[in-house]
Design a protein around this nucleic acid. Structure first.
Ligand SMILES: [Mn+2]
Ligand SMILES: [Mn+2]
Ligand SMILES: [Mn+2]
Ligand SMILES: [Mn+2]
Lengths: 237, 237
DNA sequence: CTTATTGTTTCGGTGTGCCTAATAATCTGT
DNA sequence: ACAGATTATTAGGCACACCGAAACAATAAG
């Protein structure tokens, strides 16, 4: 019997393995895992063997790492924890969205299930965190919003910001300063020549502003296509 | 330079050493430390040497352990964390007072200073936790309420419950069930013969109830003598 | 098709915090 | 004052999570 509570490290490994495939398809490699966790490659090799022994991952030497069903279960519970904590920090303790990640990274391992339950109840069981990432339900179900990177949309495309990558706090601070938030209306105007920045219009028709977004910004913003608008545009042609 | 962040273990050791002398005078011994921390005596010996190396405690082999000024500073910050978290859990997340200790014991090591500050602000900088223990201020100052164990008071003594030891959760549940809380009025009626239970009257004059408290209960309740009442009693004679 | 290059794993070793068992110091009762 | 009990420390080891360097696979280049 393997009922032992997973260590914080194991929880982080599994969470990172899961997160890597959340908006992409390819499974994560050893080196990528090491980079994201900030540890040496050798540490990852060891740890992956341990995860495999515990039945949390599948792994053949020299190939990528994937989660087992048990691994996915654990990962989802950690992701739920992380994102609920982030949401709580913003809504109840007045954190800004660029401050919550590091705090949640530690708290997720320390709080009890009871704490998570009460927190979720107090917040009204939110479906997404301050960055628009979906919060898995207690039973492990997730509703992934259909979203595409702003950087990959065609000219004229419209929609709403549905997710903002929280990888770079600087970027989050910039967006906050510019008053760009989740659910903002967005329209791709075009791209400056020779791989230049992406020109985007943000805000409701009345008060919309134009921005030149560098690649890093444009690929951090995820957009949910506005079906109505798209339909209109097609009709307009 | 010794700026290294203290580990969770070190934080717990220092906190326990401090707490031991909070309502008593004698410094803590190796064995007592081991008991309170739930570790072997040998572990304490090792750890105490480490604490001494880091300048947190004074210790001569085979004698009791006392905190240095640095040690007291760290201890107070941990006690503040612990008690603020307990208060937060009760007031904001609907925990019962017998559920908060274990959760706080872990969270105190995981939350940031920012978290503590915002929590304290949200709670209105409370001066005591759900069990009546004083919460040190951010600058390390503590206002210790003058209190005596109910078990040590003379017959006829009156006052208010100002602290309830949170060592035994069962006891806390019993008191909650009997609706006995902080600030309740209390009067020592007498003691049953041959070292029997202590007879106490609890509640305001209108609706007061009589209890027979076993030693464990009577020594867990701390009472602040009601000067006015005492004065009245003296005048009544 | 052999050789670089890159990615991955293995090996030996570190630091922390815990354990049991053995030893040493202190305290107690006669 | 001293044997025996109690309390504390040391010795030797273990589990965990990490590291750098060396060995090894897989792949890309010549
Ligand atoms: Mn984490
Ligand atoms: Mn997030
Ligand atoms: Mn603790
Ligand atoms: Mn308390």
């Amino acid at each position: 019997m393997k009922t032992s509570t997973p260590s914080s490290s194991i929880e982080d490994y599994v969470k990172v393995i899961y997160s890597f495939t959340e908006w992409q398809q390819k499974p994560i490699t050893s080196t990528q895992l090491a980079q994201r966790l900030g540890v040496a490659n050798s540490s990852v090799s060891e740890m992956v063997r341990k995860l495999k022994d515990q039945g949390l991952v599948d792994h053949k030497p020299y190939s990528a790492v994937t989660l087992t069903a048990d691994g996915v279960r654990l990962a989802l519970s950690m992701v739920r924890r992380h994102r609920l904590i982030e949401t709580f920090l913003v809504q109840e303790l007045g954190y800004r969205w660029d401050e919550v990640h590091d705090e949640a990274e530690l708290l997720e391992h320390a709080v009890s299930d009871t704490f998570i339950d009460r927190m979720a109840a107090k917040l009204g069981n939110p479906a997404r965190d301050p960055h628009g990432d979906p919060i898995p339900a207690a039973d492990g179900s997730v509703r992934m919003p259909s979203a595409h990177r702003l950087s990959e949309l065609d000219d004229g495309h419209t929609g709403r910001i549905t997710r903002i990558s929280d990888e770079n706090p600087e970027l989050l601070r910039y967006l906050a300063a510019e008053d760009i938030d989740l659910d903002a209306e967005v329209e791709v105007v075009g791209r400056r020549p020779f791989g230049g920045p992406l020109v985007v219009r943000i805000g409701s028709a009345a008060a919309s502003r134009e921005f030149d977004f560098a690649e890093e910004v444009a690929s951090a913003l995820w957009v949910h296509s506005d079906a109505a608008h798209t339909g209109c545009n097609v009709a307009d042609l």
